[in-house]
Simulated scan of single mutants.
Amino acid sequence: DALDAELALVREKIRAGTLREYVEGQCRVRPWLTALLRLGDFEYTYLEERVPAFRQNQLLADTSEALSRIEVVRFAQRVQERYAPPDLDILLLLPCAAKKPYSISQSHQKFILTLGKYRKFVHEVIITSPLGIVPRELELTYPASHYDTAVTGHWDEDEKAWVSGCLEAYLSKHGYKAIVAHVEGAYREICERVAEKLGIDIVYTAGESLTSYESLLNLKNTVESICTSENFSQKKQNAEEEKKNFVKAVAGYQFGEGAGLLFSEEVGNPVVKGRFPKYQLFAGKKQLATLIPQYGMLALSPEGAELVLKSEKYVVKIDDFVPRGSILAPGVLEADPEIRPNDEVIVLGKKALCVGRAMMSGREMEESGRGVAVDVRHVKKL
């Protein structure tokens, strides 16, 4: 009876998307259970294939094991591998905020207001645990806007090492002419570690309080002096370019190399319409994609899908039929192994091109004999 009750509870946690939080809580009562959880996290490839691209509920990062959670590691890896920053010369490093997305928090609103007209010259990257670093363009993307963690003001060595590694990898790959850090405490310690290791200069602007008049004035004066110096290149992004870079970054995170096809010469000059966070990508009068604020990823239109299809990524191939509703696993002939549950996917058959959300991984689609493979949203007959 106890086993049946526990199995029923586990099933409920799976449905609610909170199994990981439940396991982390339960394993605290036995050292061997904690060891088992940590050993399980080493099986990254096996687990990552089965963990959804996003969840509806909040990700609670309350334990040291949160640093090895699939969602956390996947986000950090994609930032390093898929993210391309805007072409700007100044990097501004900022601390995270309790309110998500960061840009609507009280502290970040003050930072943005302080930068004023010089903000268009600056690329903003947020330092945070457990995600490492979050470029401003990805602040909506799961799990950047969906996590919560216990805030004490004290970081343990594992956190510092992990976040330092993320920042170091990013700065090793992307160069800036000037780096400004408006941080304090452990955030500053992390920046100093990375600066020393890479042999780069970082200008620190915060005093005792990040949002004090003196600190904000120092931030403004520092950025202004860099922007008005004789050797400054004046690289900047206007409001339209900022919106386009935002959508482009999300597309890159989501689709990898295939995202560039949404912004290729063939498209012409795509335009992002709408106000944050409800952005829509258009090519002329054709809508290519919509940013879904709830989880910070793009939903493709059939026209957008036709462009991304050329990359042959996130594609599910089906037999000779026109889908009506969901596509079941037995109807799948082939699926991209990179597909994860909840990924936006393109379904291609001889008679139809569809767009929808994956309900299982690409491998599961090919191997399963039952279950919904894709929840179809748009169907275009060929």
Rank of each mutant, 00 (worst) to 15 (best):
H146I: 07
R82T: 09
T128G: 08
L138P: 04
K99N: 06
K273T: 08
Q58D: 09
R74S: 06
I190P: 05
R193K: 13
K313V: 11
V122R: 05
R28C: 08
C166M: 02
G260K: 13
F75P: 05
V267M: 01
R370P: 00
R38L: 14
A206R: 03
D87V: 04
Q287D: 06
H146K: 15
N238W: 12
F263M: 04
P341C: 04
Y83W: 04
S233T: 15
G268F: 00
F263R: 05
T228M: 12
R193N: 15
S105K: 01
C96T: 12
S103T: 03
F75E: 06
K248L: 14
A195V: 02
A98R: 14
A358W: 00
E334M: 07
K310E: 13
A251H: 04
V194Q: 04
E334N: 06
Y170P: 00
D1H: 14
T34Q: 14
A97P: 00
N238H: 12
E12K: 15
N238C: 14
A305R: 01
D320Y: 04
A97M: 05
E303R: 14
S301Y: 10
L36W: 13
L9C: 11
Y187C: 01
K350N: 03
T152C: 02
E334H: 07
E21N: 13
L216C: 10
R136W: 10
G349K: 02
F54Q: 06
